[in-house]
Design a protein around this nucleic acid. Sequence first.
DNA 1: GCCGTTTTCGGCCCGACTGTTTTCAGTCG
Length: 564
Amino acid sequence: MRNIEVARIFYELADLLEFKGEAIFKIRAYRNAARILAGLDRPVETVRQEGALTKIPGIGRNIAAKINEILLTGSLKKHEDLLREIPPGLLEIMSLPGIGPKRAGMIHKELGITSLEELAGAARNGQVRHLPGMGAKTENDIIRNIKMRQDSGASILLGTARELAEEFSGYLKLLPGVVRVEAGGGLRRRQETVTGIELVVAAADPGPVMEAAAGHPAVKETIKECSDRVVFDTKWGVAVHVEVVPEKSFVAAWFRNTGSRAHYNRICHLMSERGITFDPAVPGSFGEERNIYAALGMQFIPPELREDRGEVDAALEGRIPGLVELKDIKGDLHLHTGWSDGLNSMEQVVARAREKGYRYVAVTDHSRSLKIAGGLSLDRLREQHRKIRSLNEGLEDFYILTGIEVDILPKGDLDCPDEILKETDLVIASVHSAFKQDRETMTARILSAIENKNVHIIGHLTGRLINHRKGYALDVERVLDAAASCGTILEINSSPDRLDLNELNARRAKEKGIKFSVSTDAHSLKGMDDLIYGVSVARRAWLSPGDVVNTMSAGELLRFLGKK
DNA sequence: GCCGTTTTCGGCCCGACTGTTTTCAGTCG
C-alpha cells in the first residue's frame, strides 16, 4: 500500500470525526499523522517492519497500531465503520470552500441532503439561504463551487498521475513479452491535470499483456477493449488506457498517443503534403521520435510544447528554444523547515539538497502573522538566520541563503520590517490571508509588495489550488507589468496542487522579460522532489535556463538579488 | 491523539475574515 493511500485514510478519518464533533486535538493528531505519512520519503511499510513507527514524531502508540492494521488488512475498521455511518457525499459537501462540519451537518439535518447533486439542486431552488447563518451569497458560492468541482470531473493532478503511471508501468514491465512501457497523452506532455493515464506498451502479442494488465490490484473493471488496446477503471478514480503495439511500431504509436491531437494532426498534414508516409500501424523507419521531425526538416519539438500553440511553425523556422531542464536547477529557493510548518530540520533539508546535487538552498519559513503555520517572530527569525550563518561556515561548496516567506498583509504592507528584510538574502512575498478581497484591492496589495525594493520574489502569485480553489481576483496583466519594471522575480511554485504561475501566465511573463524562480515550497523531504513539476510548467511556458534565476551559480544569484 | 514530563495529566495553534448578523458562529490558513 502506498504511503499516500494510508495517509488518505487518516485524512478521511479526521474529516469523519470532525463531522461527528469529536475533540479537535484528536482530529488534529490524525491530520498531522496523515501529513507526516504523505511527506515520508520511504515506504511506511518499511518503517513498520523495522518497528520504528512510533519513533516518528507525531506517531504514537495509537496511530502506530492503526497504521499496522491498515498495512496488514488493507483497511481500518474505525474508518470503515464511520463510512457506513456517515454518507460519503457529506464529506464532499464538507470539502467545499466555506462549508465545514457544522454547516454540512446542518444541511444534512435540515434538508436531508447527502450528496453534492442534491445540494446543488437545493441551492438552485433557494432552499439553502433560509438556513441559519447562510444567505444568498453563500448559496451562490455553493452553486459555483459545485460546478467547478463537476467541471474538473475525473481530472487528477499531474503529480498524482505521474506516480500512478509509474506504479502501473512498473507492473506492466514485469509481464512476459513486454519490451517497453512509456506514458503518453497529457501526462507525457506534462499537463497540469489529466483525465486518464495513457500507457503505450511494446510487445509482440497484445492479448496476454492486456489480460495480465487487468490483474493489476488497482483495476476495478474493464471499460473498453479491442484487439490492441484496453481501458480500465481503477480504484484510484482515474482511467488507465493501455495500448499494446509491436516493437517496430512503438515510436510511431507513442508519438500519436502523446498528441496533442491538434499537434499530431498538423504534423500528419505536413507529412502528407510532402509525400512522407506516416501510419503508426505500419512499421516505419522512425526508430526514434526525433526522426519524425527530422524527416520534415524541422527541429525536434519536446512533448511539453506539443499543444499547437505555435510550436510547429517555430520548429520549422528553428525558433524552438533550448528549454530549461531539471538538471539545470542549482538550488531550491522556497523551502520550509520545522522552524515553521515544515516537517524536517534545516540540517535534513540541506543534506537532501546536497544529495540532489544542488549548490544552494534558501530557507524561507513563514513570517510572524501566519500563526497556524508557526510563523517566526522577529527574534526567532534573527535566531534562525544566525544559525544559518553558522551552518554556512561548516559547509564547503554549498550555501544556505537566509530567507523568509513574508506575508503580504491585507492592506499591502509586509509582515516584517524593512530593516530585517534588507539583511535577508532572499525574500519571497506571498498572500496567505483575505483571499476574497476585490480585484482592485488585491491587485494594489500585490503591487505594493512588488514595488518594495527588499522583495525579490512573489510566491504562488494567484493562490489557486488546482481542482479546489480558484485564484484570487487579480489583474494579472498589471501585476506582470509591475514585476517587469521593478525587476521582481515571479515564482513557479512546483507543488502539484499549485503550479502557480501556470504555463500561460508564465509565458506572458517571459514575453515581458520577467525572470522566474522554479522552486518547490516543500514542507517535507519528499516535497523537495516536486521540482520536476515546476520545471514542467516552465518548459510548457517555453522557458530557457536563462529565464530561471535558480539556474545561476550561488555567486551569480547573490549578485543578481543584490541588484533589485 | 501526541508529547513530555514537574510520570499521569495538561497543553497542543490562533487570529482574521466572511457573511451573516446586528454581535457572532463558522471557516480558513
